[in-house]
Write a protein that binds this DNA or RNA. Structure first.
Lengths: 191, 191
DNA sequence: GTCTATAAAGCGATAGAC
DNA sequence: GTCTATCGCTTTATAGAC
């Protein structure tokens, strides 16, 4: 969509601008250019200014993850297939590490406190969804939870490293190792 | 030191301010307060302004890691002890995930391009130092390199997760698992 | 609902007194 | 070498024309 006419249509462009410049680094002028909307229109859509824009972007991202990643894990008809799908979808979403995780970087940076509940919800749900999927596959919870925690954390680390080294192959290598470990753990706990 | 009189004495306070507010988010006024130095003194020490301050901070951090982390790994008299020491030192340095990795977050954020060579050097040397240590312990390079890559990446992920969840215990759990995996790999390749 | 013009504040950076 | 005062510019946010 060239020039958004609805608030939600502006979110992807806003997200990319925030990814590229960070929350403090992205000025309203930058966001105006990125969306094609004038400042007045932006403030019409987001009366709360930049903070509301970022909050809406994070909510949008969270919504996407819920439907595309978390819910399938929680259904968990076939845990092995669900984990394979998660890894594949995550690789596409983060463009093999070429794309930053806005939730993770906001959680790291200084502006994180304003969005702390969002980042917290995102990671806790991801970990519990993955742990639940492992549990459904026969992995006992005391093992499944730290394993899920390690993998979700590992994905964030892969993004940091791939971005720092401009090495998307590293991202793919790390996720492959994580996937292999998850599948091996599942295989050793077949009911 | 209450009020720094030498350029290098200002670096720790600058580093903490950059960690807390990010590069764009930390204004010169912020940095002046953080260091106790007036703007004039800051610009006297760092004529290049904020960019030079951040660059000096990153160089200082890199120097600390070289002497405290990388060099011991590269000496590698006792690989097992060296890896234990690395994990212990890293846990202290990052305060169990309560302290952010400035190199990693700068590498993620928008201002990363200006400091790309520093972040790249930091991670490549860490990975090669750790891989060399594993190699010295008998782990063949084709296995040691991706393993080192995974662990260095995993530490970054643990920082992201611990910070997002305000859960330092998660940081410790993840690093313990990484350490156990490294030591197990070493043990299975005793010469 | 969209834009331009503008207000008020804060920014990085500099000049000059001491 | 340190500070305060100040410059010029950009920032967020608003007001008002259309």
């Amino acid at each position: 969509m060239r020039v958004p006419t609805r608030r939600e249509d502006a979110l992807p462009a806003l997200a990319e601008a925030f990814r590229e410049h960070g929350f403090e680094g992205a000025s309203v002028a930058t966001l105006s250019k990125a969306t094609g909307l004038g400042k007045g229109s932006l403030y019409n859509f987001f009366p709360g200014g930049k903070t509301e824009m970022m909050d809406a972007v994070l909510a949008d991202i969270d919504g996407w993850f819920v439907t595309a990643i978390f819910a399938p894990l929680e259904r968990a008809g076939d845990p092995t297939a669900a984990i394979r799908a998660m890894m594949a979808d995550v690789t596409v979403y983060f463009r093999s590490g070429g794309r930053t995780c806005l939730v993770g970087s906001i959680g790291l940076g200084g502006s994180g406190d304003a969005f702390a509940s969002r980042t917290r919800g995102y990671f806790t749900r991801w970990i519990s969804a993955l742990a639940g999927c492992l549990d459904a596959g026969g992995v006992p919870a005391p093992l499944a939870v730290p394993l899920a925690e390690e993998v979700v954390s590992g994905i964030q680390g892969a993004i940091v490293l791939a971005h720092a080294l401009s090495d998307q192959a590293a991202f793919v290598r790390i996720l492959r190792r994580q996937e292999a470990m998850l599948l091996a753990t599942l295989a050793s706990h077949v009911r």
